[in-house]
Design a protein around this nucleic acid. Structure first.
Lengths: 313, 313
DNA sequence: GTGAAAGCGCTAACAT
DNA sequence: ATGTTAGCGCTTTCAC
């Protein structure tokens, strides 16, 4: 394998200097038509492709945004990552996504790698463990934005969990349910989970309902859709019908929930806005914005489908 | 924002030379204990983090693998990307994933960016359009591996489509079905789709079945699970019961298919092996292996669940 | 054991 | 309009 052509090769071949080649490539206007043509011809003939590493090194800035996600397998995150990638690209940034499987050591390792790569900024979707990783990033000075979770130390965008759970619980209460359970799992991002649980408990009190275990609840609110769907599965395998015996409401609004066979009632998050705002916040910081951490709160929306029904008496 | 510390800062603070600092950081053994301690202390105090860009530039190699996927939203790809990321990491590589939404211009742009970043190699999961992008990558000399599709020009790993569809069709034929349809969509990767369709047609002939339109088929084989699940949905909304009136079999083996409410009969692909083999092939090439393109063919596996049943007479 | 020096491929003043 | 020069932050011979 022969060496890749560099800017010097292009310069020699076209009889121009390195700087002129660099200038032409970056679209500079003040070059004689003839020289420009020769340079472009040489680029073409040599199959020259500028070395991004070298450019970024000298420019002292990169155009890569790191996205760290816990579980790319959850469609909610898949959807978010895909949109983040699109918005980042539109803002002139490429993305590097790291899946951590929720392990904090893996998270630390990946974030460390992003930092060494001098990414322009990082979007955190989920955190494994205790978030100490954030101190490292903040200390490093690399811009960060948290999307779909909360974090007072940095910019973040999320959905109003209080409103979301209130929507869910009031819907259940309106259907006559009084004994409601909240279910979660260790895979749910911790802070998100506690925010949802607290909002749930509060909404329950306000609606005059009581929180119980799944076993003697007539309705349950799940921390997210994946969990809700699995719950329906388990409930039915155990002989309890949904929604006749028990109503189930999820959170997120993932696509499978809309299938007729699933028909999951859920609190949907605005993916597109979440992603757009996340990138906007981050790009702002990258551009040098230096105010206090901002928090964008989006409104979730209740989508009533077939897993919730009036309580049978 | 003050400047990040560089190796020179560490050198000055510890009273060692750049080269020694570099040496210590990379774990060199032949340094006096005292100097090593001072260097490490300076690193610590300064919060020094080596600049990966500079290192890669001088080393003339990067440790990043680009993964290009058409639709991260399809759980099959989400699952694959996640595993590819893990295997790549185990082999010492970080990954940069690009979602193209199936658009060839976007694909070309992303691949071009990967090439400029001088990624060590690229894993292609899906191609938009006519694969001309491959010529660019091949011409560039950057190692490529195709995972879950076929491609004679480069290393690839996939499942034996012929076996897969034969499994599906024979299963249907054994249940008494004679009129079988094949359904696909533009979102299915082209080459994969034609391989599956041809294998389907062939298996039909061999099993003595006849290929028909969905409307008058008693069974249908879908190009992938997502399509199969949507098909069940549409069929049932239109009043045709699955599997009583029509049997449906998918391809891929995505997780939702296993839910009791879905119970999708499908031809499952071995995710883990696919990802492992893909990274193995690529890393081999990166290491300099220079033989003809290799093709690894994995065996798919039929998973019978509830969307297929004996044909009612 | 330690350091000086060259250079990876590029950009950006600063000449001319 | 074009070229010269000085780095960006790091690794790596090669002396000492």
């Amino acid at each position: 394998m022969t060496q890749r052509p560099t800017i010097v090769d292009v310069a020699e071949r076209s009889g121009a200097s390195k700087s002129t080649v660099s200038y032409v490539i970056r679209g500079g206007a003040h070059v004689s038509p003839d020289l420009r043509r020769r340079v472009l011809a040489a680029v073409e003939e040599l199959g020259y492709r500028p070395n991004g590493l070298a450019r970024q090194l000298v420019l002292q800035r990169t155009s890569t945004i790191g996205v760290v996600v816990g579980d790319l397998t959850n469609p909610f995150y898949g959807e978010l990552v895909k949109r983040l990638e699109r918005h980042a690209h539109e803002a002139g940034y490429a993305t590097t996504v790291s899946n951590t499987d929720g392990h904090s050591e893996r998270e630390a390792a990946r974030v460390g790698a992003l930092l060494e790569q001098r990414v322009a900024g990082i979007v955190m979707l989920q955190f494994g463990g205790d978030r100490e990783i954030l101190d490292e990033v903040i200390g490093d000075g690399t811009p960060v934005a948290v999307v779909s979770s909360t974090e007072p130390r940095v910019d973040s965008v999320g959905v109003d969990e209080r409103v979301g759970l209130a929507l869910a619980v009031r819907h259940l209460a309106a259907l006559g349910h009084e004994r409601i359970a909240y279910v979660t799992s260790p895979l749910v991002e911790e802070r998100t989970n506690s925010a949802r649980y607290e909002s749930f408990a509060r909404a329950c009190r306000e609606a005059g309902c009581v929180e119980t275990a799944v076993e003697d609840a007539t309705a349950v609110a799940a921390a997210n859709d994946i969990l809700a769907i699995e719950l329906v599965d388990r409930l039915e395998r155990a002989g309890r019908r949904v929604p006749e015996d028990v109503s189930v409401v999820g959170f997120d609004g993932i696509a499978v929930g809309a299938l007729a066979r699933i028909g999951l009632t859920t609190v949907a998050q605005p993916y597109e806005e979440l992603a757009a705002a996340g990138i906007r916040l981050l790009v702002d910081r990258i551009a040098g914005y230096d105010g206090v951490p901002r928090r964008i709160l989006l409104e979730p929306r209740l989508v009533v489908r077939a897993t919730t029904a009036r309580k049978e008496r």
